[in-house]
Nucleic acid binder design. Structure first.
Lengths: 211, 211
DNA sequence: CCAAAAGTGTTAATCTTACACCCATGA
DNA sequence: TCATGGGTGTAAGATTAACACTTTTGG
């Protein structure tokens, strides 16, 4: 079982990587993963991976794919099932496990992972992109209060395209998932920024059922 | 492992059902399914299900979902993974296994299956519907040569909506996946009908990569 | 020649895209 | 007061939806 755990930090999307502890590819950079043992449920392994690496198991996870290849392995039969998750470093109280060398890495072309883990990231990003056509994205990645520019940056980053500010704002507001927060953000220079939050019920609804 | 196997026959979508052989719900109508044994790959079980029920294992199958619930069972650990498939009764040389009471049933509100198999069908239909927004549908369900009306009927059936004939034809032709077959179909009454076939390369391409 | 089914174009409405300036604030 | 970043509206273009009649053919 492997997990692509994404965050959006410093205006960039990043993925959680660890150093592989065993052969093959010992010490290579990989996605956090664990073998699914004979007597474990998927959820149990998922929880283990999360606890071991970020000390929080209560995060948003979606299933990516199940590969039913059969490996003979001393531990038992291996079913390779991949998941992806979305978190916010502060909101989710992430504590990275240094023992595993758990680190969030920028998703650029220099990021080279062992096994087929690069492809797994690609698949996850493709799924997220596809999902964004039907459903909102952001609640799990952004802090509770955020600016329209941050949201635009996130969309821009995950969809790999630049948006026209005006069109973006109009489209997002039409989605009817945001509430203006009474407070505003003070900036060093220039105008104050309106802060938004997601309306939890509306967000949930669209997230589950699509627009 | 459970399989939703759909066909499109007599202008209706149908799903393969069998009589359950064991408890609980002995003799109830269910989707063809088998327990995934400790030493089997997913593909192996899938092949078994197909061979046992329709005598053909070479059909179009997509993975639906993997449920990692853990059941204790004398046979071993059970992972419940569902698939859906699309076939054409004639083209795929389907031979139904009467011993299992294998039958294609119309998908209407009267169809009541045991376990959560009705929900599984719903999920499969939802996925197919979603897929149709990005990718063509029909090659696996229709005979090699078909009329525009048949294709419209199929789309109409799977998307549960009526189409405007003119708009439908225009949209499909713009997709650039069809070829006119030289032959035409003679009808009892009225005008001859143009026959189409899918351009295999173009269809494959759009089916894999989306429009 | 007529009943039955197939086939075909145009217009209005909607949605999407492109584009540039003013506003508020802190230094 | 000015440099900085935030915020806003409109018009053209593209896409989608609505609509009804003519063609072909077998009986």
């Amino acid at each position: 079982m492997s997990l692509c755990l994404f965050c959006y930090n410093e205006n960039e999307k990043k993925v959680l990587t660890v150093r592989n502890k065993s052969l093959p590819f010992k010490n290579a950079l990989v996605l956090p993963n664990k073998l699914l043992k004979y007597n474990q449920s998927l959820d149990e392994v998922c929880t283990e991976i999360l606890t071991e690496n970020i000390r929080n198991q209560e995060v948003y996870i979606e299933q990516l794919n199940a590969f039913g290849k059969l490996y003979r392995n001393p531990i038992g039969r291996v079913i390779d099932i991949s998941f992806y998750g979305l978190i916010n470093l502060e909101k989710d109280n992430i504590v990275l496990n240094h023992e595993n060398n758990a680190k969030f890495k920028k998703l650029d072309s220099k990021l080279e992972l062992a096994f087929d883990h690069n492809e797994m990231i690609e698949l996850a990003l493709k799924r997220i992109k596809r999902r964004m056509k039907y459903r909102p994205l952001g609640k799990n990645l952004l802090p509770n209060e955020f600016t329209m520019n941050e949201l635009e940056g996130l969309y821009s980053s995950f969809l790999s395209k630049k948006f026209d500010t005006r069109n973006f704002r109009r489209r997002i507001l039409e989605m009817d998932i945001l509430r203006e927060v009474k407070k505003v953000q003070r900036n060093k220079r220039g105008r104050k920024t309106i802060l938004y939050e997601f309306d939890p019920k509306k967000y949930e609804n669209y997230s589950n059922n699509g627009f």
